[in-house]
Design a protein around this nucleic acid. Structure first.
Lengths: 71, 71
DNA sequence: AAAGAGTAGGGTAATTGGGGCT
DNA sequence: TCTGTCCCAATTACCCTACTCT
């Protein structure tokens, strides 16, 4: 019942979103995206979650405040 | 609590964390993760410990529902 | 006994984490 | 407020050859 989806590295997620890996790190630190940490401290992201975010699944997304237009 | 004695290979643990098998070996050498050595010198890892490490770290993350904070 | 896949070990390059700043 | 870039330190990835496991 567990979703064994693949994990993505910060760099891969950054490429998917076309942003700097540092930005992905900030998202994780802010709790906007779930993250798994390796014993070494590096982050890994669930592909399914990233996909959902990329798909524009804004229905159940956070940070969707009052009509805040995109930057 | 029973001890999950199922042992995982470095490659399996590496797949779970999305890292290189050599990195898992490094974790064991650094004492970050418990390891059992075969008479031949190969390492084996306890699944229960690996699972704990994978889920042990979870900051605020999405997936539950939209946390509508009036922020 | 032989073969293939996986693993150990060492060394070097690339990526990542964290803080601070343009 | 959010993102990109610079710094340095730590972690991780890929190269090789030799040994172990099935």
């Amino acid at each position: 019942m567990e979703t064994e989806d693949r994990l993505l590295t910060p760099g891969e997620v950054a490429s998917l979103f076309r942003v700097d890996p540092k930005t992905v790190t900030r998202w994780a630190a802010a709790g906007r995206i779930g993250s798994i940490r390796t014993p070494g401290g590096h982050r890994r992201f669930r592909e399914s979650e990233v996909r959902a975010l990329l798909e524009g699944d804004a229905e159940a997304q956070t940070g969707f405040e009052a009509g805040h237009s995109t930057h």
